[in-house]
Design a binder for these strands. Structure first.
Lengths: 203, 203
DNA sequence: CCGCGAAGTTATTGAGTAATCAGTAATAGT
DNA sequence: ACTATTACTGATTACTCAATAACTTCGCGG
């Protein structure tokens, strides 16, 4: 039985070496998923390594510490939401019935962004990770980052939608309710989409 | 240097023995505070023991496991909110200007309960603990308990206030926004009260 | 084909941590 | 006063986990 090792590696040509940047990205995705479920302290670097398919210590060549990895994950998470919002605002009437009901342009855009958000968080990881980020705010560095990204998201949403401060507050409030409801599984996973629309008051 | 030990114990007469029930309660309070900040996995039983002023192993005589302690803390937390709501609903016009503006009885009661909630979570621990409870919902036992208590709270709130389903959804959505905003310290601790009133849409 | 930098691993450490056990001291009941 | 019960602690265990160090392997440019 010679050369048992690397038998798997050779096959196909997949899962060979990746560039550091690629690996960083893979680790980041795995990290968001893992952190989303178990939180900062409940997730071990070992878990993240296993999901990524690399050894645990290699994480620390890509990120200086577990906390730094978490911070990077926060950025990635907000980036995704922001991107979805921008795209929805640019093209408010795609995949939406909002051009039927009239409404002001601001309403239409907010509406479209709501749809985008619901679609985005249909995969629950993003939603759950957000909750974990809020929960981890005892750490001051994390709190600062989350706060900064939250404020930026509100600003961007305001600019994109042109909605008033009160409208936005209500809008975000409903989003947060959606987060909590998803966390505790008040709504069956399959029905999350429909429920989301209802909770946000759209559609 | 004889009898150094117990020198502290003798003095005064305080910090002597408590009944198991008393200690259980003390541990529970300390646990809520600690869990609120660091979460289920970020809080060690040692921390809770230190806060309570007992040895770490004694925790495990009062609670079978750390998770059971957390579950008990969840119950205590929701109990407190529920109690505050009941009290507010029974006597809606105490410490409130709501008898000035008319409004339906349901509105007045919801209004009063909103005030009660804001007052309750002015000490942030309750708020933060709630977030930690939602975040810990990856554990199925915890999720079930949180879900059960949440549903019960909604039912109680509905009965007490007589508000409609839509009113309640909005009400709870704003509460959740308040939670998040408090978590990330978007609002200075001192101003939390005023901000809370504004966020909940109460005068 | 060689060697050098980048990608990746194994082994290890040191600090912490939930939980158990075996015991000690205070109090209540008689 | 004495004993049974109840409150509580110290020592320890078995284990996990972030982080480091020291090593190996790959693949590219010359």
């Amino acid at each position: 039985m010679p050369s048992l090792l690397k038998a798997s590696r050779r096959s196909g040509g997949r899962d060979l070496r990746h560039s550091a940047a690629e690996r960083r990205d893979e680790v980041l995705r795995a990290a968001v998923d893992a952190f989303a479920i178990h939180g900062l302290h409940g997730t071990s670097t070992e878990m993240i390594a296993k999901r990524t398919g690399i050894s645990q210590p290699y994480i620390f060549r890509l990120f200086p510490s577990k906390k730094d990895l978490f911070l990077a994950a926060v950025d990635q998470c907000f980036d995704r939401v922001e991107a979805a919002f921008r795209k929805a605002a640019e093209n408010p009437d795609v995949a939406t019935a909002s051009h039927h009901l009239g409404g002001s342009p601001a309403d239409r855009r907010l509406h479209a962004m709501g749809h985008a958000y619901v679609r985005l968080v249909a995969h629950r990881e993003l939603l759950l990770f957000q909750m974990q980020a809020y929960a981890a705010c005892a750490d001051d560095e994390i709190r600062r980052k989350v706060k900064q990204r939250w404020e930026r998201l509100m600003k961007v949403t305001a600019e994109l939608s042109g909605a008033s401060r009160d409208e936005l507050t209500l809008y975000f409030a409903r989003g947060m309710l959606l987060n909590v409801v998803a966390s505790i599984g008040l709504v069956p996973e399959g029905a999350a989409d429909a429920w989301g629309h209802k909770a946000l008051g759209i559609g």
